[in-house]
Simulated assay, not measured.
Amino acid sequence: MKFLEILFLIPTLALSLAIIVPLTGVLVRFRANYNPKALRLDPEGGAQAHTGPVIHTYFVPTLLSTVIVTLFILLFLDAPRTRHGAYRAPEAGVLGTLVYSVGMMLISLPTAILTYRSITTPHKLPYFQLMQNLRILLTPTERSRPWILYLTPGLLPAEVLHIVIVVLGLGPLRRLLVPELSAKTESGLGDISIVKLSIYLVLVVLSTAILTPLEVIATRLAIQRNHASSEYNSVSQEVDGDAEETAEFSGAEEDVIGLRNEADPYLGLVDCGKRIIDEEGWMSLYRAWWLTLLGGAGSAFA
């Protein structure tokens, strides 16, 4: 039986990777895209809106891919699926889950930063030239002092706050309001209180209003490279050793996104949120909010 499960698992993983990996790239690019509201003058002297790259095609393909992968897993494997924004940890109480989740985040953070930068970089990354890719994605400061990635202004607070809300907020509320969803009983879901379930789903919606901006801000901060020199602060543009000649994607071949000038970096979590609102509008903080909402609502039935 195990052998048959493995045989089914391989094509399922392949299907998931083939669909989810590219669309994860779309999500990161969508949230990272810098599209300020500033006006500029056209050749005739009239004002026109900023015309940077605009990405707005994430909803439909991701929804379709989620439905396809979910149906395939439920019909053929009857296995639980991974949901965006869900923290799975050993049963060790609330504090144990919090420590575990923060620890896993710290371990995976450098990889996440490299992944986000790989997705958003305008440079072509050779498949088999690791060192060259690292020189493109990391500044000289980051290559000489890798731990500075953890000091990216505002990134750790954004990630930790996200975990705290999910683990210390939604987790206990779920166990308090709808414990039947966690308990495996023979009665199934018949004993669930519709009122309590509705209250929990309302709380999920409210939490989405906080979690989505944190996810957008974390994406922006993760792709912001760290610089240091005697003349510049820890996030300012470095002068030497940071601009190797590398090929870039052309607009015809790749949907290149707009990136914020590194010479004027975000200075932290609050500063990033404030600047996004001032420069791009508050709706930019809620890009792909529906995905965060689906993840929170789906976690109730995990």
Score class of each variant (00 low, 15 high):
residue 5 E to L: 11
residue 170 L to P: 01
residue 156 L to T: 12
residue 163 I to W: 08
residue 70 T to P: 00
residue 263 A to Y: 08
residue 52 G to R: 08
residue 242 D to H: 05
residue 97 T to P: 00
residue 244 E to M: 09
residue 272 C to W: 03
residue 150 Y to L: 12
residue 97 T to F: 06
residue 213 P to M: 11
residue 153 P to S: 04
residue 84 H to Y: 14
residue 30 F to N: 09
residue 212 T to E: 01
residue 29 R to V: 02
residue 56 H to E: 10
residue 168 L to T: 13
residue 194 I to E: 00
residue 119 I to A: 13
residue 268 G to I: 07
residue 45 G to W: 02
residue 154 G to V: 02
residue 118 S to C: 06
residue 69 V to G: 02
residue 231 E to C: 01
residue 249 F to D: 01
residue 214 L to F: 13
residue 43 P to W: 15
residue 200 Y to A: 05
residue 251 G to Y: 11
residue 86 A to M: 07
residue 30 F to D: 03
residue 178 V to T: 10
residue 68 I to V: 15
residue 44 E to I: 02
residue 258 G to P: 05
residue 79 A to R: 08
residue 143 R to H: 10
residue 50 H to K: 07
residue 283 M to E: 10
residue 28 V to A: 10
residue 263 A to E: 05
residue 248 E to K: 14
residue 243 A to E: 05
residue 243 A to N: 06
residue 67 V to R: 12
residue 254 E to C: 07
residue 52 G to N: 09
residue 133 N to F: 03
residue 289 W to E: 00
residue 276 I to N: 02
residue 297 A to S: 04
residue 137 L to I: 07
residue 270 V to W: 15
residue 50 H to Q: 08
residue 143 R to A: 08
residue 298 G to M: 05
residue 20 I to E: 04
residue 110 P to Q: 07
residue 7 L to D: 00
residue 87 Y to W: 14
residue 209 A to G: 03
residue 141 T to A: 09
residue 38 A to H: 15
residue 57 T to L: 11
residue 247 A to E: 15
